[in-house]
């Protein structure tokens, strides 16, 4: 079970949150010009990395606000949380591989 830090409420148990997958996927603006390939790619295809993953969480049973988390998917180690719109923290890849 993870301990997740909500940028507004502080550290809480993971069961208060729900995860919504890969972060920083921008919705295309020119939607009427997109091909099927581009639409499919945006909606369904994911990096699904083994290692550092930037992902969206929502504090569903708390303040109900969205934020991002940098987490290692192999060890489940959480590197940190940050608010939407903020630049993701740079993580030392040496640290990630450990």
């Amino acid at each position: 079970m993870l301990i997740i830090e909500c940028p507004w409420c502080g550290k809480r148990d993971q069961t208060e949150f729900s995860c919504h997958g890969e972060a920083h996927i921008a919705r295309p603006l020119n939607t009427e010009e997109l091909s099927e390939e581009e639409w499919g790619d945006y909606v369904f295809f994911r990096k699904n990395p083994k290692g550092l993953h930037y992902e969206r969480w929502v504090h569903a049973h708390g303040c109900r606000r969205w934020f991002n988390v940098a987490r290692n998917t192999l060890s489940d180690h959480i590197h940190g949380s940050y608010k939407p719109g903020e630049t993701p923290p740079t993580i030392d890849t040496q640290e990630v591989s450990q």
Partner: peptide, 10 residues
């Protein structure tokens, strides 16, 4: 409910 390769689970 979150991506992981940890082979453990919550």
């Amino acid at each position: 409910a979150y991506n992981s390769y940890s082979q453990r689970g919550g």
